[in-house]
Amino acid sequence: MTDDRVSPQRPPRRPQVFRLDDRDLTLAPPEPEPDDSSAAIPDPARKRSGAVSRFGMTLGGLFWTAAGGVASLAAYVGLSRLVSDLYAQSPVLGYVGLAATAVLVLVGAVLLGREVAGLARLAHLDRVRDKAASAIAQDDRALAEAVARDMLRLTADQPPLARARADLRGHLAGIIDGADLVRLTERTLLPALDARARQMVSEAARNVSVVTAVSPRALVDLVFVLYTAVSLMRRLAQLYGGRPGALGMVRLVRHVLGHLAITGGMAAGDTLVQQIIGQGLAARLSAKLGEGVVNGLLTARLGLAAIAVTRPLPFTALPAPRLADVATGLLRKAEEDEAASPR
């Protein structure tokens, strides 16, 4: 009998019936308690797309690696020469110099480690988002479960989500399809975080518009807008579990600006009108106030882009925040000011 028709690798297994007192039988627990630490997390390890050469490295990467190597060598040579010079002057001075160098290197390594960890966390957010997107596209249960577990870990330090996490953990044991599980994860864990993110963005936008309106010099505005924008991005990343370091911030800012450049064109349709209206309204009042509203809107746009790049899941089950959601206060305030000003 040729049994190549069911599975080419393996002969088909005949149906069988077992008694429940069979020693080799393990019943699935009715409500399995998923254990985060022991669960095997399948990592699909999707390759990040990019111009990667045959040797697994881009030219730019090679350049920076080489530059880093040369710089480290120079630093090493400089330091060792300094220490030996000091030693030549007085042995005590040499030991002090050596100790200082050791502390320098040690702390530098720790700082570097923290930066790397921050970068890794940001990269992790990106990876989770990619995984979630493909889990939805392919309706892949294993991938979706990995995403859900990642999300549980990312939100583990958020006490108000304890109940939502417990709910989700319970649902992991149920029979739910991949795409549905990702949407369920989003609906369960993220509404509270999204609301806070929206609030942060809208507060930042308001602050920027007020400070711009009352500040005496353009330089002050600029500094304040930059400061607010960077701290907003940082806090959003923290909210969604990113906690970036300094290097991470640089990457995040680049990421956000890139996102803004891509979506800016598309968003122009719905935001430009509002911006012009806001500007027109406020400009009649005072140029300064109009500037404030524009800067506020800019911050709000930046905030939305930051949400899009730091949120670990794509917006599928929940609606993505729009400019109107985070800038309503801004526009209303401008209108109120206008209404109040003639008196």
Binding site: P12, Q16, V17, L20
Partner: peptide, 29 residues
């Protein structure tokens, strides 16, 4: 009835129903 055993409606058993093929086309020969 399965495997020569007739059930009485009270006994609980475990059943392995057979492997469904990976691609359905195998069934529609």
């Amino acid at each position: 009835e399965a495997g020569g055993h007739v059930f009485d409606g009270a006994e609980e058993v475990a059943v392995f129903p057979g492997d469904l093929p990976e691609t359905p086309d195998a069934l529609f020969d």
